[in-house]
């Protein structure tokens, strides 16, 4: 079975470490915040200028001046800091954020990522994504392994305009957890019940399959 969005978030959350500053993109990455392990302190960075994003507000707490980068109303947790967009991207570009999790349309075996534009179809802009992928050492890309029509999104070379070049080293799809190294995807884990053969079939880029590929496990 392919992973659900919630399971993908749970799997990404296992990469968190106590004391990490983390930027979570829109979509599945946002859900990761729900799975921060108990006893672990993680500070969420929102690129509109908030370090220490808290929970969504109650009706009474809603404040138009307090939003996240997805423009949702949020709260600031104790220990949070608020600053300008220039300051926010100084910490991003300067490599101070420990982990960035973001979605993508395509990733290729050279670590290139395309996530912001589909010519003729979707031209909304890159927001902070280009700065995030340029600035972070440690990025996890979350995406579906293939399109609804079965076309692989893990490619030899991205077809769409790039968001960043050679910057992605880890990908979590609904089928597998992979690393990218030396011009190839390396299959590290597979979703429960998903066969290596299915992953091979749905990976268009060069894929290295180790002798043993463990199956992910989930509590619930």
């Amino acid at each position: 079975m392919a992973l659900t969005r919630e399971q993908m978030a749970q799997r990404v959350a296992r990469e968190l470490q106590d004391g990490f500053y983390v930027n979570l993109g829109i979509g599945i990455p946002t859900l990761v915040a729900n799975y921060i392990p108990d006893g672990m302190d993680v500070m969420l960075q929102s690129e509109n200028g908030l370090l220490g994003m808290g929970r969504f507000p109650t009706e009474e707490e809603v404040d138009a001046d307090m939003i996240n980068a997805g423009k949702q109303t949020v709260t600031a947790r104790p220990g949070a800091a608020i600053f300008s967009s220039a300051e926010s991207f100084a910490m991003i570009r300067g490599g101070h954020v420990d982990l960035t999790v973001l979605g993508a349309f395509e990733v290729d075996q050279e670590g290139n990522i395309a996530s912001w534009m589909i010519p003729g179809k979707l031209i909304k802009g890159m927001g902070g994504a280009m700065d995030l992928v340029a600035g972070a050492e440690n990025i996890i890309c979350t995406m579906t392994h293939a399109s609804k029509h079965g076309e692989s999104k893990l490619l030899e070379k991205c077809n769409l305009p790039l968001t960043g070049a050679g910057c992605i080293s880890r990908v979590l799809t609904d089928l597998a957890y992979l690393e990218i190294k030396d011009g190839a995807f390396i299959l590290k884990e597979r979703a429960p019940g998903v066969s290596v053969e299915e992953i091979v079939e749905k990976t268009a880029g060069k894929l290295i399959v180790p002798d043993h590929v463990p199956e992910m496990t989930f509590d619930e």
């Binding site: 690129e47 300008s84 967009s85 220039a86 926010s88 991207f89 991003i92 570009r93 031209i123 802009g125 890159m126 927001g127 902070g128 994504a129 280009m130 700065d131 600035g135």
Partner: peptide, 15 residues
């Protein structure tokens, strides 16, 4: 005419 500019680059251009 739309000039899409990365958010951090845009902030730094103003700064």
């Amino acid at each position: 005419d739309v000039v899409l500019t990365p958010q951090g680059t845009l902030a730094e251009k103003m700064r």
